[in-house]
Protein backbone atom coordinates (compact mmCIF):
# COMPACT_ATOMS: atom_id res chain seq x y z
CA UNK A 1 0.00 0.00 0.00
CA UNK A 2 2.68 2.47 1.03
CA UNK A 3 4.35 2.42 -2.39
CA UNK A 4 1.09 3.06 -4.21
CA UNK A 5 -0.32 5.89 -2.13
CA UNK A 6 0.61 8.31 -4.88
CA UNK A 7 -1.66 6.50 -7.26
CA UNK A 8 -4.86 8.58 -7.22
CA UNK A 9 -7.06 5.61 -8.08
CA UNK A 10 -5.95 3.66 -5.03
CA UNK A 11 -6.29 6.63 -2.76
CA UNK A 12 -9.78 7.33 -3.99
CA UNK A 13 -10.78 3.72 -3.60
CA UNK A 14 -9.43 3.80 -0.09
CA UNK A 15 -11.55 6.80 0.83
CA UNK A 16 -14.73 5.12 -0.44
CA UNK A 17 -13.98 1.94 1.47
CA UNK A 18 -13.13 3.94 4.59
CA UNK A 19 -16.34 5.98 4.37
CA UNK A 20 -18.49 2.90 3.83
CA UNK A 21 -16.79 0.99 6.62
CA UNK A 22 -17.19 3.95 8.95
CA UNK A 23 -20.90 4.13 8.13
CA UNK A 24 -21.20 0.42 8.86
CA UNK A 25 -19.51 0.74 12.23
CA UNK A 26 -21.81 3.64 13.13
CA UNK A 27 -24.90 1.70 12.11
CA UNK A 28 -23.80 -1.29 14.16
CA UNK A 29 -23.15 0.92 17.19
CA UNK A 30 -26.59 2.48 16.83
CA UNK A 31 -28.11 -0.98 16.83
CA UNK A 32 -26.95 -1.82 20.35
CA UNK A 33 -29.20 0.62 22.29
CA UNK A 34 -32.14 -0.64 20.23
CA UNK A 35 -31.36 -4.21 21.27
CA UNK A 36 -30.34 -3.51 24.86
CA UNK A 37 -33.52 -1.59 25.65
CA UNK A 38 -35.37 -4.93 25.62
CA UNK A 39 -33.23 -6.35 28.44
CA UNK A 40 -34.62 -6.27 32.00
CA UNK A 41 -34.60 -2.66 33.17
CA UNK A 42 -33.19 -1.21 36.36
CA UNK A 43 -36.46 -1.69 38.26
CA UNK A 44 -36.66 -5.36 37.34
CA UNK A 45 -33.04 -5.91 38.36
CA UNK A 46 -33.50 -4.26 41.73
CA UNK A 47 -36.60 -6.21 42.72
CA UNK A 48 -36.58 -6.79 46.41
CA UNK A 49 -36.40 -10.12 48.13
CA UNK A 50 -39.51 -11.39 49.86
CA UNK A 51 -40.02 -12.86 53.30
CA UNK A 52 -42.40 -15.76 53.85
CA UNK A 53 -43.94 -16.91 57.11
CA UNK A 54 -43.94 -20.74 57.19
CA UNK A 55 -45.90 -21.24 60.42
CA UNK A 56 -49.34 -21.72 58.80
CA UNK A 57 -48.11 -24.60 56.59
CA UNK A 58 -48.81 -27.95 58.22
CA UNK A 59 -46.91 -31.09 57.40
CA UNK A 60 -47.99 -32.38 54.01
CA UNK A 61 -49.26 -28.99 52.89
CA UNK A 62 -47.78 -26.57 50.38
CA UNK A 63 -48.14 -22.92 49.44
CA UNK A 64 -47.25 -20.92 46.37
CA UNK A 65 -45.80 -17.40 46.66
CA UNK A 66 -44.72 -14.95 43.95
CA UNK A 67 -41.09 -13.92 43.66
CA UNK A 68 -39.87 -11.81 40.71
CA UNK A 69 -43.05 -12.65 38.88
CA UNK A 70 -42.54 -16.38 39.24
CA UNK A 71 -44.46 -18.87 41.42
CA UNK A 72 -42.37 -20.39 44.20
CA UNK A 73 -43.47 -23.76 45.59
CA UNK A 74 -42.93 -24.19 49.33
CA UNK A 75 -43.82 -27.66 50.57
CA UNK A 76 -43.71 -28.94 54.12
CA UNK A 77 -42.90 -32.56 53.28
CA UNK A 78 -43.98 -35.53 55.36
CA UNK A 79 -41.19 -37.72 56.83
CA UNK A 80 -42.10 -40.39 54.29
CA UNK A 81 -41.67 -37.98 51.42
CA UNK A 82 -38.29 -36.84 52.77
CA UNK A 83 -37.19 -40.41 53.15
CA UNK A 84 -38.32 -41.28 49.63
CA UNK A 85 -36.38 -38.34 48.29
CA UNK A 86 -33.25 -39.31 50.20
CA UNK A 87 -33.43 -42.92 49.07
CA UNK A 88 -33.11 -42.06 45.40
CA UNK A 89 -29.76 -43.02 43.86
CA UNK A 90 -28.05 -40.52 41.58
CA UNK A 91 -27.98 -42.94 38.66
CA UNK A 92 -31.77 -43.16 38.73
CA UNK A 93 -32.02 -39.48 37.92
CA UNK A 94 -32.64 -38.05 34.50
CA UNK A 95 -30.84 -34.86 35.56
CA UNK A 96 -28.28 -35.55 38.32
CA UNK A 97 -27.43 -31.90 38.94
CA UNK A 98 -28.91 -29.63 41.60
CA UNK A 99 -30.25 -26.54 39.82
CA UNK A 100 -29.72 -23.84 42.40
CA UNK A 101 -30.17 -20.29 41.04
CA UNK A 102 -27.12 -18.08 41.37
CA UNK A 103 -24.78 -21.03 42.12
CA UNK A 104 -21.91 -21.47 39.73
CA UNK A 105 -20.67 -24.77 41.21
CA UNK A 106 -23.04 -27.58 40.32
CA UNK A 107 -23.55 -30.23 42.97
CA UNK A 108 -25.23 -33.63 42.60
CA UNK A 109 -28.98 -33.40 43.02
CA UNK A 110 -29.11 -35.07 46.39
CA UNK A 111 -31.91 -34.14 48.77
CA UNK A 112 -29.28 -32.59 51.05
CA UNK A 113 -28.12 -30.28 48.28
CA UNK A 114 -31.67 -29.20 47.50
CA UNK A 115 -32.69 -28.34 51.07
CA UNK A 116 -31.17 -26.51 54.02
CA UNK A 117 -29.63 -28.66 56.71
CA UNK A 118 -31.79 -28.75 59.82
CA UNK A 119 -34.85 -27.88 57.76
CA UNK A 120 -35.02 -30.99 55.59
CA UNK A 121 -38.81 -31.08 55.58
CA UNK A 122 -38.98 -27.78 53.65
CA UNK A 123 -38.62 -27.87 49.90
CA UNK A 124 -38.50 -24.51 48.14
CA UNK A 125 -38.46 -24.55 44.34
CA UNK A 126 -39.42 -22.40 41.37
CA UNK A 127 -42.79 -23.79 40.31
CA UNK A 128 -42.16 -23.73 36.60
CA UNK A 129 -41.83 -26.88 34.53
CA UNK A 130 -38.40 -26.87 32.92
CA UNK A 131 -39.89 -28.19 29.72
CA UNK A 132 -41.91 -25.28 28.34
CA UNK A 133 -42.86 -23.18 31.34
CA UNK A 134 -46.20 -24.54 32.55
CA UNK A 135 -46.96 -24.70 36.26
CA UNK A 136 -46.97 -28.33 37.47
CA UNK A 137 -49.85 -29.69 39.55
CA UNK A 138 -49.31 -31.03 43.07
CA UNK A 139 -49.56 -28.02 45.33
CA UNK A 140 -53.14 -28.51 46.42
CA UNK A 141 -54.54 -31.48 48.31
CA UNK A 142 -56.14 -33.78 45.76
CA UNK A 143 -53.97 -32.59 42.87
CA UNK A 144 -52.53 -35.19 40.55
CA UNK A 145 -48.92 -35.60 41.73
CA UNK A 146 -47.66 -38.08 39.22
CA UNK A 147 -45.95 -41.45 39.74
CA UNK A 148 -43.17 -40.03 41.96
CA UNK A 149 -45.40 -38.17 44.42
CA UNK A 150 -43.94 -34.74 43.77
CA UNK A 151 -45.43 -32.69 40.97
CA UNK A 152 -46.98 -33.52 37.64
CA UNK A 153 -47.07 -31.14 34.71
CA UNK A 154 -50.41 -31.34 32.88
CA UNK A 155 -49.06 -29.84 29.66
CA UNK A 156 -46.78 -32.62 28.48
CA UNK A 157 -46.72 -35.11 31.34
CA UNK A 158 -43.44 -34.37 33.10
CA UNK A 159 -43.32 -35.99 36.56
CA UNK A 160 -41.18 -34.67 39.42
CA UNK A 161 -40.33 -36.41 42.68
CA UNK A 162 -40.69 -35.02 46.20
CA UNK A 163 -37.36 -33.17 45.86
CA UNK A 164 -38.48 -31.50 42.64
CA UNK A 165 -36.29 -33.69 40.46
CA UNK A 166 -37.43 -34.65 36.96
CA UNK A 167 -38.04 -38.38 36.75
CA UNK A 168 -40.27 -38.91 33.74
CA UNK A 169 -41.42 -36.97 30.71
CA UNK A 170 -39.99 -34.41 28.33
CA UNK A 171 -38.65 -31.86 30.84
CA UNK A 172 -34.83 -31.82 30.65
CA UNK A 173 -33.82 -30.55 34.10
CA UNK A 174 -34.87 -30.51 37.74
CA UNK A 175 -37.02 -27.72 39.19
CA UNK A 176 -34.86 -24.73 40.04
CA UNK A 177 -34.23 -23.77 43.64
CA UNK A 178 -34.24 -20.02 44.35
CA UNK A 179 -31.65 -18.51 46.68
CA UNK A 180 -33.18 -18.36 50.17
CA UNK A 181 -32.25 -18.48 53.82
CA UNK A 182 -33.97 -19.25 57.11
CA UNK A 183 -34.34 -16.16 59.28
CA UNK A 184 -35.92 -18.23 62.05
CA UNK A 185 -37.50 -21.67 62.25
CA UNK A 186 -40.68 -20.38 60.69
CA UNK A 187 -39.51 -17.58 58.43
CA UNK A 188 -37.52 -17.54 55.20
CA UNK A 189 -36.25 -14.80 52.92
CA UNK A 190 -36.21 -15.59 49.22
CA UNK A 191 -33.83 -13.65 47.00
Amino acid sequence: MASTTDDPVTRRDFIHVAATAFAGVGAAAMLWPLVDQMNPDATALSLASIEVDLSPIDTGQAITVMWRGKPIFIRNRTPEEVEAAKAVQMDELKDPVARILGETVQEPATDEALTKSGYEQWLVAVGICTHLGCIPKGQRIGDERGPFGGWFCPCHGSAYDTAGRIRLGPAPTNLEVPPYEFLSDTRIRIG
Partner: peptide, 13 residues
Protein backbone atom coordinates in the same frame (compact mmCIF):
# COMPACT_ATOMS: atom_id res chain seq x y z
CA UNK B 1 -40.26 8.80 33.05
CA UNK B 2 -39.71 5.10 33.76
CA UNK B 3 -38.31 4.76 30.25
CA UNK B 4 -36.04 7.77 30.77
CA UNK B 5 -34.67 6.51 34.07
CA UNK B 6 -34.78 2.73 34.23
CA UNK B 7 -34.83 1.27 30.72
CA UNK B 8 -31.44 0.66 29.15
CA UNK B 9 -30.71 3.60 26.82
CA UNK B 10 -34.35 4.67 27.18
CA UNK B 11 -33.33 8.32 27.51
CA UNK B 12 -31.36 8.10 24.26
CA UNK B 13 -34.21 6.56 22.31
Amino acid sequence: EHLMRNVNYGWLI
